[in-house]
């Protein structure tokens, strides 16, 4: 993405348990041949310092009540908490109201690249990049307060 012009950058923080989306609309100042949307967020998983005994109990109680799950060992519980539970954020882009791509892969740094000939998997090549770009950040699950994210739109 070197040599591409940054035409928009924004960041923010999400609070625990936020569900919903935040959309950013960029009125492109000219016709571009290439577009790259970079999204980063973190942390994705719990760290030991995040998990109090009260939170552990809350998670255990929920999984038992909702799914009938009860870990068979402390190791299994640790694995579930630190590896299987996750903050999950998707990104979707539209151009002039038409869907041009969505990224479901849970990468903490991801790109959505578009040109007339190619595009990142999950995205659709665009013959003409002009008009109104809308990027939507979709927060499915946020485990922790102060989960940070940055969105950068670059073009050439």
């Amino acid at each position: 993405m070197e040599d591409m012009k940054t035409i928009y950058q924004v960041g923010g923080t999400l609070c625990r348990d936020f569900t919903g989306q935040i959309s950013y609309t960029v009125c492109l100042d000219q016709t571009y041949r290439e577009l790259d949307i970079e999204f980063t967020f973190g942390p994705r998983h719990f760290s030991p310092g995040d998990v109090s005994e009260a939170l552990k109990k809350e998670l255990l109680d929920y999984c038992k009540k909702e799914y009938g799950l009860a870990p068979s060992s402390p190791e299994e519980l640790e694995h579930a908490i630190y590896h299987e539970m996750k903050t999950e954020i998707h990104t979707i882009a539209t151009l002039n109201g038409t869907f041009i791509g969505g990224i479901h892969r849970q990468l903490e740094t991801r790109h959505m690249y578009f040109s007339p000939e190619e595009a990142t998997e999950g995205c659709i090549p665009q013959p003409c990049i002009e008009g109104v770009l809308r990027v939507t950040v979709l927060a499915f699950s946020v485990l922790l307060d102060n989960t940070a994210y940055t969105l950068t739109v670059r073009a050439r």
Binding site: Y62, E66, A80, M85, K86, E88, F140, S141
Partner: peptide
């Protein structure tokens, strides 16, 4: 399916 906190929306 199991949803939150593993994969919210799966249920």
């Amino acid at each position: 399916s199991f949803g939150w906190p593993f994969a919210k929306g799966c249920r």
